[in-house]
Nucleic acid binder design. Structure first.
Lengths: 344, 344
DNA sequence: GAATCACTCCAAAGCGCTTTGAATAGTGAA
DNA sequence: TTCACTATTCAAAGCGCTTTGGAGTGATTC
């Protein structure tokens, strides 16, 4: 059942039927009623492909994911982000188009998708420090929004981010306030922009307390349970081991906790542990995992916010590019305590 | 730059340009060369919306996810499945359309999406026992493929599944072979079809060994680390605790392991633990998590397979509906050992 | 009674591509 | 020279919707 057929059955023109269904004012209410009833009865559903061509919009937001990323721990955060964004898309009549591409095709995929009109906007996730995708998209003249930021880029673009630097300053500062001075830092891969900023936050806090950073206490790598365990274990084996750890995610925190308890140390007493918590649905701090002291910022909520910002941008293209910076919230849990042997 | 403009610059008709670009034989090779070169030079990219309308295909596969599911642990498996399916879509020129809907809108969403032509096929994930989605989709006359099966449905439909019953028979049988007779079973939610089948496999193995199943040793619930921990801990507190556990996923297995070690018991010696392993990228058994004895079947590979089967079905609609049943592979790790105090 | 206006409705022109059915030119056979 | 055929190319008709620019009513105004 298409528009033409429906309009024939109603002895009306397609124009009128279309307008009746789309709520245009120039149609008699009695007619509109007849039309909507007939549409419901015959189960009429406007063909999406025709609609997209006619309106020039695809009502779809694109997310591009290179193969290799599908392996990373980004995955776990990714799923929550997607869920949040998807909710908002849905509420606004949008779909999400996921495109998985080979790594070497990533750039050309952005180009192809931006130019062939299959999406109305794009979300860029997990930017690296000087992310080439941003300039590339900016040149392509399609609405896009970056979840995170790319430090060394000075063209304007829309982004939404959490204040990573400040978050790690707070977290590290909290441990310093408890008397800790040897604090192991287990970070994500530092080619990622967020990891760069978190590192900066860690360093800022040390500097403010007059503590000299020590390379042996700083690890950077993929944020897996395994890496958390291995790096923490190595630090604990040092002659002068750390009395506390800060880490970039709940996932390595689980590994760190395992390393701590394997050595017979008590979490929050012998050793403290604080982390950045993305508030991931099935690794909810204090629920699925034990309660860690953390700075928390929901990545799912971020997904919602990003989606909304992008949709706003699509609806008002001459609107200036928006930015949004969230502050993460400190939650003190049972995983941190005063540094043993120090008066606080 | 659209087809019309490009054809004008080439002083050719749109017909010829279109054919040249799409590899039709009735165009002179010299002309084709001119056309492809011009297309590259002017950066011509066929408009996807127009193409979809003209061809009657959207080159897109739909996945529908109700809000509530985005909370579940399904998420973690989901991300890997999506990654696998996405790879195959990409290789075949398809996109993936994810639609997040409110739970009460799930059915109508399937209907809307199937009927408005926005996708060429649908994947149904995580079927429950008498899943209403299947009959619903079958009536809608759109290619779809179920990852998993729904037990009580007798209309024909295409599916791909792992042999869950056999997998748990093997796993439980392995423990029985090691002399265990009190085996705790920590399963997923039993409204899910896969959980139902796994339960059956567990029961089959007990029956084959003449062991009477005991309700106190059987748990069913969402497969979180937390639930794994709590249920295992409760069973270990029984007067006559189990000497081994079987569980439906690596995630609860982590919780079970935590419960075991918290009681000072040694995994693989005092207590055995075996699990079904979906081979999830960032919880890879033996890599990210310790090596568990497991039956393994990659959910990512399943994603690939499902995608391929669905695409085959789309390309050959009169093709009979395919089924594929995979057997999971037993991997013996360090988490299982002979039952203490039993001669084997 | 003519002019104006609001209210409804419609014909037709896109949107940018594919595909059908012909037309044209060139070639070898008869 | 003519005919049948092949190789190329094109005009035009969709695909199913939206939207522009009227057109046809009565009702209202002067």
């Amino acid at each position: 059942m298409n528009l033409k057929e429906l309009s024939e059955r109603l002895a009306l023109s397609p124009t009128t039927v279309s307008r009746a269904l789309n709520g245009y004012p120039e149609v008699n209410e009695a007619t509109r009623l007849r039309v909507t009833e007939a549409a419901a009865r015959y189960n009429y559903r406007p063909n999406a492909r025709a609609l997209h061509l006619a309106t020039g919009r695809s009502m779809s937001i694109g997310h591009i994911i290179p193969f290799s990323r599908t392996n990373e721990m980004v995955n776990i955060v990714f799923a929550d982000f997607i869920a949040g964004a998807g909710e908002v898309y849905s509420l606004n009549g949008y779909n999400m188009t996921l495109t998985v591409v080979r790594d070497e095709d990533e750039m050309s995929a952005y180009r192809r998708i931006a130019e062939n009109g299959s999406v109305d906007g794009l979300i860029v996730q997990s930017p690296v420090c000087d992310d080439p995708r941003i300039a590339h998209l900016a040149a392509l003249d399609i609405p896009f929004l970056v979840h995170g930021r790319a430090s060394d880029i000075n063209i304007p673009y829309a982004w939404m981010d959490v204040n990573n630097t400040q978050a790690l300053e707070v977290l590290t500062g909290h441990l310093i306030g408890l008397g800790h001075r040897r604090i192991g830092f287990i970070n994500g891969q530092e080619r990622m922009d967020f990891a760069q900023r978190r590192r900066q936050g860690y360093l800022n806090a040390l500097k403010a307390a007059g503590i000299t950073p020590e390379p042996a206490l700083m690890y950077s790598g993929e944020m897996s349970e395994q890496n958390g365990h291995a790096s923490a274990d190595a630090m604990l084996a040092l002659d002068d081991p750390p009395t506390a750890f800060v880490t970039s995610s709940v996932v390595p925190a689980l590994g760190i906790r395992r390393a701590i308890s394997a050595r017979g140390l008590r979490l929050g007493q012998d050793i403290s542990l604080a982390c950045f918590d993305d508030d991931i649905s099935y690794l909810r701090n204090g629920d699925v995992v034990p309660e860690f002291t953390a700075v928390r910022s929901s990545v799912r909520a971020a997904g919602r916010r990003c989606a909304q910002m992008l949709i706003d941008q699509i609806n008002a293209p001459d609107h200036r590019l928006e930015h949004d910076l969230w502050e993460a919230e400190l939650i003190t849990g049972q995983s941190t305590g005063p540094c043993p042997g120090v008066q606080t």
